[in-house]
Design a protein around this nucleic acid. Structure first.
Lengths: 223, 223
DNA sequence: CTTCCGCTATGAGAATGCGCATAAAACCCC
DNA sequence: GGGGTTTTATGCGCATTCTCATAGCGGAAG
C-alpha cells in the first residue's frame, strides 16, 4: 500500500509519514503542488493525503487535474480550521474525506484505513488457505487465531496476497515496501521472507522461491 | 458489460437483474446450476453473481468447474446467513467477493462495480492444451496444478508460447534468454529443451524438433 | 543398402552464485 | 536505556546452470 502525502508543513508531514509508516504503509512526501502532480504521474498510489494550502500549485488544482485524468485514487484532504469554503469545494471535486487541522494521528490512521479498504474492492477479507487477511484492520489470522506481524511483514504479505499465485520479483517487493529515497537491499527482502515464512508455516502457507526471479505465494489448491 | 445471475429464488433474481439492468449492465438469468453451466460455456460474461444454494448443480460445483476451465471471470457469491462454511469454501475456490442474504441492492451494485472494474486489469492467460501460462505472474499450470519451473525453463516456455505453432531458431532462443553481454551455447539450449520437455510431457505438450532450424511448440488440436 | 557426417538427445559432473540462516549492528519508540 | 524491529554482514549449502562426453538419429552420398 503506497500513499502520497502532499503537505508543505514538514513537521506535520513528518508526523503523518511516521505514523503511517509505522502502520506498514510505504509513504512518499511531496512538499508542494507541482511535486505532488509529478509524483502522481510517475507512480501509482493507493491513496493521496492532500493539504489544500499547498504552494506552487494549490491542493484544489492538484485534485482537479487528478480527477480530470479520471483517476479514482481515494483522496483525503487536510484543511485549516477556517477553510470551510475550500473544504466544500474539495469534496465537490471528488475528494473522499477530509480532516481539519490540527488532528489526531490516530484518527487520521483510522480514516486512511477506511479509504484504502474501499480501494481494495470492498472485499471483506483476503483468504488463502487457512490464512485470512483483513485489509481494513490490516490484521492477519490463521485458523481464526490472530497472528502477530511487524509492519514490514504486513507490507510483504499484502503484496504477496495481492499477487497470489504469481511470481513477484524482489525489485517489485522493494518498490512496494519503500517509498523512493529509501531503498532496501535484496538481502533485506530475503530476511523478511524468512521471518514471514516462519510465521506462516504453521498455517501451511507456502512462499515458493524461484531462483533468480523472485517469490510466489502459493495459491491453495482449488480442490 | 454482461453479467450472469445464477439464483433460484426468482424474486431475488428479479430484483437484482432490474437493479443491475438499471445501472447499465446487460443481465442474463440462470435459475439452476446446469443452466448456469450451460450459459457460461455458451457466452462470455464479465461477471458471475452466484448463489451457492442452487438446485441441480450446486453453486460450489459451478464455481469449481469454472475455475477448472481456467476461467478468470470475477465471481461474487451470494450466501445464506448461516452458510459460513460454504462461503469460506467458495472463496477458497476462487470467488472474488461474497454477500450475505439479505442484502441491500445498493451495496450489491457497489461491489459489482468494484469487481467489473478490477476485471479490466486482469491479464488473460495463454492456454495451450492442458497448459496455462500467466504472462504477468510468469506461472505455469497443467490442468490447474502449478508446475515447478526454473528461471531458464520459464524463459524458454515464454518465447515458445509466444510463437506457438511456429518455428523458433536457437539463435532467437539465445537472444531471448540472455541479456546483452552474456551468451550461451547452442548445446545449452538443447539441454533446456530437454528438461522442459520432461516437465511438460505429463500434460501432453510437445516440443517438436526441426533438424537444423530450431524448435516448435505444437499447437493443440482443434484450433 | 551401407556408410558417413553432422545435428540432437541425454546423462553426469563441475562451477557458479543465489538464497538461507544466523548473528550482530543500527534504529526507533516507549 | 531497554524492548522491539529493521537492516547490514557473512559464510555455507545447494539448486541451477552450463560444459562435456557419449550415444542416438537422420539425411545424403556413394
Amino acid at each position: 500500500m503506497r500513499i502520497l502525502i502532499a503537505e508543505d508543513d514538514d513537521i506535520i508531514a513528518d508526523g503523518v509519514s511516521r505514523s503511517l509508516g509505522q502502520a506498514g504503509y510505504s509513504v512518499d512526501w511531496a512538499a508542494h503542488g507541482e511535486a505532488a502532480e509529478e509524483a502522481l504521474l510517475a507512480h501509482s498510489y493507493d491513496l493521496l493525503v492532500l493539504d489544500l494550502g499547498l504552494p506552487r500549485l494549490s491542493g484544489l488544482e492538484v485534485l482537479k487535474r487528478l480527477r480530470a485524468r479520471h483517476s479514482t485514487i481515494p483522496v483525503l484532504i487536510l484543511t485549516a480550521l477556517d477553510g470551510t469554503h475550500d473544504r466544500v469545494r474539495g469534496l465537490d471535486l471528488g475528494a473522499d474525506d477530509y480532516m481539519v487541522k490540527p488532528f489526531e494521528l490516530a484518527e487520521l490512521e483510522a480514516r486512511v484505513r477506511a479509504l484504502t479498504r474501499r480501494a481494495t474492492g470492498n472485499s471483506p477479507a483476503i483468504v488463502c488457505g487457512s490464512l485470512s487477511f483483513d485489509p481494513v484492520g490490516r490484521v492477519t489470522q490463521i485458523d481464526g487465531v490472530p497472528l502477530d506481524l511487524s509492519a514490514r511483514e504486513i507490507g510483504l504479505l499484502e503484496i504477496l496476497l495481492a499477487r497470489m499465485g504469481r511470481l513477484v520479483s524482489k525489485d517489485q517487493l522493494v518498490d512496494h515496501l519503500c517509498g523512493w529515497g529509501e531503498e532496501v537491499s535484496h538481502n533485506a527482502i530475503e530476511v523478511y521472507v524468512h521471518r514471514l515464512r516462519k510465521k506462516l508455516e504453521s498455517g501451511g502457507i507456502k512462499i515458493a522461491t524461484v531462483r533468480g526471479l523472485g517469490y510466489c505465494l502459493e495459491r491453495p489448491q482449488g480442490e
